[in-house]
Design a protein around this nucleic acid. Sequence first.
DNA 1: AAATATAGTTGACAAAATCAACTATTAATC
DNA 2: GATTAATAGTTGATTTTGTCAACTATATTT
Lengths: 145, 145
Amino acid sequence: MSDKNIQEIKKFNRFYTRVMGLFNLYTDKSPYSATEALILFEINSRENCTAAFLSNYFSIDKSYMSRIIKHFEKEGLITKEISKEDRRVQHLHLTELGISTLNSLANRASGNVETMIEGIPEEQIDILIDSMESIQKILSRINEQ
Amino acid sequence: MSDKNIQEIKKFNRFYTRVMGLFNLYTDKSPYSATEALILFEINSRENCTAAFLSNYFSIDKSYMSRIIKHFEKEGLITKEISKEDRRVQHLHLTELGISTLNSLANRASGNVETMIEGIPEEQIDILIDSMESIQKILSRINEQ
DNA sequence: AAATATAGTTGACAAAATCAACTATTAATC
DNA sequence: GATTAATAGTTGATTTTGTCAACTATATTT
């Protein structure tokens, strides 16, 4: 692999790290961190999501994950339900409050994205979206759990 | 702006957040955090870099930045030099040790990027790089300090 | 000269994350 | 089928990361 390519990818990583820092998606003025928002999102998206899955998926220590989940439960955002097949595992589900909290975080994130791209001409946005889709497609192995 | 586009960008943000988490660029098995690595990188890249610049550039609280810099100084990675034009400001410079530390962090990051893209065919990599360049170009307003 | 603004520091604190030890349960091996 | 190993999740202790407000020193504005 050419070193030039590696350098270019690293440059993009630095760039995009900062983009996400500046538009701290989900996070600003919210009592929930970006990590917590992403976790809520996954709990909502997956049938029978578990702490072990989330811990592995986000490479977050299971003890920390346990505390985040405990916190969500205490706040009334989620419920835990012990699996019938395996009594060690707990399926996670958003409550009504959890769903509406996630929605408000998601709306905030949408607002931030709008700010991020405001003023960019339509055809540039199309290129942006295409590029983002390409990157995901090419790196999608990562999506495998 | 179409909601579909917003959703697609948010999806990419979630995706790439995780990519960066998994390949925690710079960071793994290193005594320096990703933030610290990025700061060292900037100090090295900019003439007369200052704490105020870094604080603003990365949206990091100036008190925290002050401590990170103090830590670098204590470790012998940087030196501070009071500006002649304005005695409030301190120009930051990497020492030899700072440079070699940054190099070793950068090598580690390169290794991680290689792992990230290994097995991806050449022409896909080209698309990946092009896409990354497009995104940077389109969002580059952000780079303005 | 006085008021404001900026660069950086410090103390106190809070939030985020890690590590190791632990319980409970299930799966694998003898 | 008993023993061992593995997995899901929890808890306590601790460290790292980040925030907030007050402060000093210098520079800029009025």
